[in-house]
Every structure is written in structure tokens, then in C-alpha cells.
Design a protein around this nucleic acid. Structure first.
Lengths: 188, 188
DNA sequence: ACCTGAACACCGTTCAAGT
DNA sequence: ACCTGAACACCGTTCAAGT
């Protein structure tokens, strides 16, 4: 629930400040996208700019904190999809992933770049691992080609969210693009 | 060959300056990506920053000027692919499109956003029209599903280039992602 | 007609001083 | 231990003055 690595508990005012920063950041990125002014976020949170940097080393760390809960939900949702067929579970999970990645302008780039070996956040890694597990299950069930690479589908999903950032919002199109990719990965 | 709308001929020094700006911009975006400093580009071109803005209203206009020739080549390449089967022509054209979109960091966003109805540049529109024509031919030949939307494949191709910007360069992976999308669009 | 470069507003980041 | 906010470096954009 926190990006801090230290095990030392935070002082009470520090906890409040951190929370205020994340909430202000959520409002700001929703309105202006991921590249909105960090100084404005600090001002809206009622803290000095230095306090923002004390809690979040860079913009990506703050963005990941903003979507921390959504990523945790994605990591958990594998179990909730247990009743569906493997391929249905994959489609529903990836749909949710795309929806989350489209929460605000620029977020898809934060999610796609967090491949395990390049130091993406733990929460992002765990979410993607949950998706990869569903994909692996669909492969084992013979519903996806045996040579399917889970990261390929995960990154294509993020890429579909990215396309959505650049054209008019169109959920029907997003679904169409995802189904096209899944059809390409289906075993014949 | 120029983004200027006016029909008035440019003064000789203006022509030189414009050319110098585009060449300096090419070097700069290759090295530092699409968001490199415009002021540095002006300096490298040996002109004042105001001159850069006189020729290019915004960053996108400059970026499009930088890849003007490549876009023109893409627009022309439809004819060069006449000997291939329709589906092969599509794959080869989209491969080229992805390659061009990956010329420097950030370019894929410039190319995907130029859908016809949102005022993208003419050259970009023409290039995409050439790709769409090849796709239409493959549909007519029964090699792609009848309900395939050409813009879907074009934007997925740009999206694949975008993925390539965020992970280690890997041409094999790019090809794999493209073939996956094409397999999804193939008629069964 | 076009160019120059100073001026302005703005932003990310650091850090000395304060509690 | 944490916070503040001034200070610094930098960037995009405009525009008065110059040729």
C-alpha cells in the first residue's frame, strides 16, 4: 500500500501529507493527464514541493501510488474469474487491464514499461503476473496457441489502451481490437 | 515536400534556414527523442528560436517535417508491392510502417494520432491511405475478414511500434506481434 | 519579409533553514 | 524526522527591434 522501502513507521503528519499528495495527484492526472505539474499537485495537497519529492522519488512513483489499489485489485481478480472458461477469463481480465490503463492520459506508458526485468513497481509486476497466469492456463487448456508469449498479450493490451488515448473514446473499438488480438493467439 | 500552406515562394535565406532546422531536428530527435529541446534545435541550426516558430507552428509540425520523405515513400510503396499476394503486401507494408514509426522515441504517437478526421498532416494521411488500400485489397481477395477495419490494423501497427519504444529493441518480437494481429484478422 | 534574441511565464529539482 | 519555500537551471513562446 506504500512505495516506501523502509520499515520504519511514518510520523503522523507524514502519513497525512502522503495521503493528501496521492489524492491531489489523482484529481490532477484525471483532469490533465500524467504530465500535469507536480508543483500544482503539491500546492493542492497543501504541502511544499520538497515534501512531494521526499515521498515520491519521481513522477512514475507518484503515478504508481495513485493506481496502487487498482493494481492490487487486478492482481486479486484472477480468483474471481475462476468460474469462467480459461479463454473467457483472459478476455475479461485483459478488458479490465485496458480499462485501468485508460484511467487517465499517459497511464498506459507507465504500465507497459514495467516489465519485470526493468524495475517496474512490485504492484504492477504482481498485476501482470496475475494476467500471465490466466494466459498460461488458457494455453494449458489448449485454447491459446502453445507458443503464445504472455507478455505479448499484456503489452498488446496496454498498447490498445494507448491507442484509446489518441482517438475519440470508443469502448466498442477497444473491445474489437482486443478480440482481434485474442483471435490471433487462439489455437486452431 | 513542405508543410507551408501559402503559395508564396520563400526567400532564399528562409529556405536555407528551414532546411537547417529540419536537419538539426532530425539529429536531435534521433538522439533524444521527440521531446528534445526546441531551443537547442534552433541553436544547432544557427537560427533564433523565433525563426523555428515562424516555420513550424508547434512541435508536431516540425516532427512531421522531419519524417516527410519517409511518409512519402510509404505512400508510394503500395505500387512496389504489386507483385506480392495481397496479404503479403499488407504484412510487408505494415512492417515498413512500424519500422518508420520506430525511427525515434515518441514518433509512434505522432503517427497514430493523425487519423483523417482529426487534422493530421496530409503526408501522414496519404501514407495511411496507401496502407488502407492494401488492406482493402486483401479483404476483397478473401484473405482478411470482410469486417476488418483498416484503421484498426494501422493503429495496431503504430501501437506495436510504441511497445517497441518501451522495451529493449527486438525486431523479432515486433514481427511476432504484427503476425499475431494479422492472424487475428485473417478470414477462416 | 524574415530574422534575432531578450523577456516572460512556467516547471522540475535541490537544499538550507526551521520545527 | 520531516517540512517549507526560496533558489537554480531550464524550457516554450512571444514580440519589439533590426535588416
Amino acid at each position: 500500500m506504500t512505495t516506501r522501502e523502509s520499515t520504519r513507521p511514518l510520523r503522523a503528519d507524514a502519513v497525512r501529507n502522503r495521503q493528501a499528495i496521492v489524492e491531489a495527484a489523482y484529481t490532477a492526472v484525471r483532469r490533465d493527464g500524467v504530465n500535469t505539474s507536480l508543483d500544482d499537485i503539491a500546492k493542492a495537497a497543501g504541502v511544499g514541493s520538497g515534501t512531494l519529492y521526499r515521498h515520491f522519488a519521481n513522477r512514475d512513483a507518484l503515478v504508481l501510488a495513485v493506481i496502487e489499489e487498482q493494481l492490487a485489485a487486478l492482481a486479486r481478480s484472477g480468483a474471481e474469474l475462476a468460474d469462467a472458461t480459461p479463454i473467457e477469463a483472459v478476455e475479461r481480465w485483459l478488458t479490465e487491464y485496458i480499462d485501468q490503463a485508460g484511467t487517465f492520459q499517459g497511464l498506459s506508458a507507465t504500465l507497459v514499461s514495467t516489465v519485470p526485468d526493468r524495475g517496474g513497481s512490485d504492484s504492477c509486476h504482481r498485476a501482470r503476473a496475475a494476467g500471465a497466469e490466466l494466459i498460461d492456463r488458457a494455453i494449458a487448456a489448449g485454447q491459446l496457441r502453445a507458443d503464445t508469449v504472455p507478455d505479448d498479450l499484456l503489452d498488446l493490451a496496454a498498447a490498445i489502451a494507448w491507442v484509446g488515448e489518441h482517438v475519440e473514446p470508443d469502448p466498442a473499438r477497444t473491445g474489437r481490437l482486443l478480440r482481434l488480438c485474442l483471435a490471433g493467439a487462439r489455437s486452431t
